[in-house]
């Protein structure tokens, strides 16, 4: 079956700044692709091209079988977009917003009203009554934004940093809503700067930097690319870090990383349990006080650092929001 979203060699520049430098993505029907990258990586530009808001300079993009440049109307009829801002009318109530957008999706007045009622219930906004959206919490606004994108039950949903600026509770609310949609078979392309968000929601992750995909795979595969599990040792006293690093190097045969602030030594390991027991014994013998020791999967932060040489959130240019 043909993928629901395909981009091939997408290029876009703004003046001298290259936003997309040959972006290739594919998203299969019913799956979630997490596009992960720092500010300025080109994520928003890609979403704007896929949602027909922006024309690419070169390359080709199809959504649900339609070309975004040549058949923008067909694309628009099958997609929903949740941008970085909650793009709803602040002065109106949740219901008024949904009815307004329903009318603009060419539903009849009665159908728009019925659909608004369904969506208000589904997104737990039914009790907001006549309250203006400007008095909503960030999470409520974003849920309304999602609801407005789903009036026509689109097959494909684009979420551009859907939880940026939300508090943890708002994020959890939005995540739950997205999971519900995915369970119902919606294909989702989600951009995020948050590694845990991609890990939580996405079936596959495309890591984007300076307008190109630099790695792609399942969250698990990306993590194992980095060399599997890591041994973490947290010390009582930062002064013991060099000694502990030496011990860990001997046990694991790898060059450990040290973090003075966290009083932590960490290194990749192959033989998990053996490495752990050896390390415990060797640290004890060296009389190094250990507060915590354990094995863990590498975080996506480490994946990103490994792939790009810089941490997320340290992108060169601020991406101009929609």
């Amino acid at each position: 079956m043909k993928p629901t979203i395909v981009t091939e060699g997408l290029r876009k520049r703004f003046g001298t700044k290259i936003a997309l430098d040959g972006l290739d993505l594919t998203v299969d029907a019913g799956t979630v692709l997490g596009v992960l990258g720092p500010n300025g990586a080109g994520k928003t530009t890609a979403v704007r091209i896929l949602t027909t808001l922006l024309r690419p300079d070169a390359g080709h993009a199809e959504v649900a079988g339609f070309d975004v440049v040549r058949q923008p109307d067909r694309v628009r009829a099958g997609i929903g977009l949740v941008g970085q801002n909650a793009a709803v009318d602040e002065a109106l109530s949740a219901r008024q917003n949904l009815e307004l957008f329903g009318r603009l999706y060419h539903l009849s007045t009665a159908a728009a009203r019925a659909r608004a009622g369904e969506l208000l219930d589904r997104f737990d906004l039914a009790d907001t009554g006549g309250k203006a959206v400007k008095r909503f919490s960030g999470g409520m606004r974003r849920r309304l934004d999602l609801a407005a994108s789903l009036i026509l039950s689109p097959k494909v949903l684009f979420l551009d940093e859907p939880t940026t600026g939300l508090d943890p509770r708002g994020r959890t609310e939005v995540w739950a809503a997205v999971r519900g949609l995915v369970a119902a078979g919606t294909t989702v392309l989600l951009t995020t700067q948050y590694l845990d968000e991609a890990d939580q929601l996405a079936d596959r992750i495309a890591v984007v930097d300076t307008g190109k995909v630099i790695a792609e795979g399942t969250p698990e595969a990306l993590k194992s690319d980095l060399g599997g599990d890591r041994l973490d040792v947290v010390l009582h006293d930062a002064a013991a870090l060099p000694g502990a690093a030496e011990v860990v190097a001997t046990v694991t045969g790898a060059r450990p990383e040290t973090d003075a602030d966290a009083r932590r030594v960490s290194a990749p390991v192959r033989d998990r349990v053996a490495a752990l027991t050896d390390a415990v014994r060797a640290l004890h013998d060296a009389r190094i006080g250990v507060e915590d020791i354990g094995l863990r999967r590498p975080t996506l932060d480490e994946v990103f650092l490994h792939l790009t040489g810089h941490l997320t959130g340290h992108g060169a240019d601020e991406e101009v929001p929609a």
Binding site: A87, D89, F101
Partner: peptide
């Protein structure tokens, strides 16, 4: 606020 973008991404 992105409302214009929403309009532009809709089949209206």
């Amino acid at each position: 606020r992105g409302v214009t973008d929403r309009f532009r991404s809709m089949p209206m």
